[in-house]
Amino acid sequence: MPHALTRLAREHGQKLLGLFLPSQLVLLACLAQGQLKPAAEWVWIDILGEGGTALFILIWLGFIVISRPAGRITNLLVLGLSGVFLSMWVDTLDEFIRLPATARWDQWLESGLMPLGFVLLTWGLHGWQQEQRSLMRQLAKRERLFRDHRLYDKLLPLCGAAYLREQLRLELGTRDERQPVFSVLMLDLDEFADLNRRHGRAEGDRVLEAVAQILVLNLRHGDLLCRLAGDRFVALLPRTGETQAQGLAQELCAALACYAHKTAPAGERLHLSSSAAVVMCEAQDTPEGLLDRLTRRLLAAKERKPPLRRAS
């Protein structure tokens, strides 16, 4: 938590100070020029409405600065929300402090900042949308049109087994004869448990991260990669027949075989070997049935490899 606070202060400190100071200045100016209203004159519905709006805008501001890295779009969003907040703040102060009729500045602040804030906010949101589109392009092979962050894998920037099953269900559910076939590919590393034993789980995690990146790079646009469990990955290959899928599987294994992983402190070189299997969907398939068939094929492929009896 302290780490998060220092990050906030470093990245957004100036902007937050830029919100805090003017609001205090306005408060001081009001107190200097005006008179406090007696409690009998307070209009509770206005206080709640205007004060409540100001409070919610502060909460939104909080979400923005906590969740976004510093940058142009964040600045626009913060500035816009700050403008709207200051306008509501002046409005709220009106309820407690009566200013002399000659003082017009509060009305200027109140009515001027609000539209300015909205313009900046809209500009920022437009930028956010553009940014999101470019992020989506990057994520395209890791998730499809449907997003649920609860289905993300906890270790890797991929979706997990639950998301995969959901996608398989959708893909199988919408199928009829006219639609093209799709295939599913399963890949896992050989002797990954041994790698974990020898080099530690932290190194194993790093290997998995690298493997995920390599697999994503070697898949086509429109394919979806998920982490099923442990070192086992599954790719959903739309509009792909079995032969083509087998070609892809060979490419993925070859890509991993060419990769020379370096361990973290020592830089020792690790070579990865992997096994893969594919299945093509069949008319009566269920997600569970499909994955079961695929897993058995993968294990059969592993059986065919010569056993790696470890030198001890």
Partner: peptide
């Protein structure tokens, strides 16, 4: 269990 794939990946079939 829901997460049968974990059993399969770590223990086999």
């Amino acid at each position: 269990p829901e997460h049968l794939e974990q059993y399969q990946a770590h223990l086999g079939m």
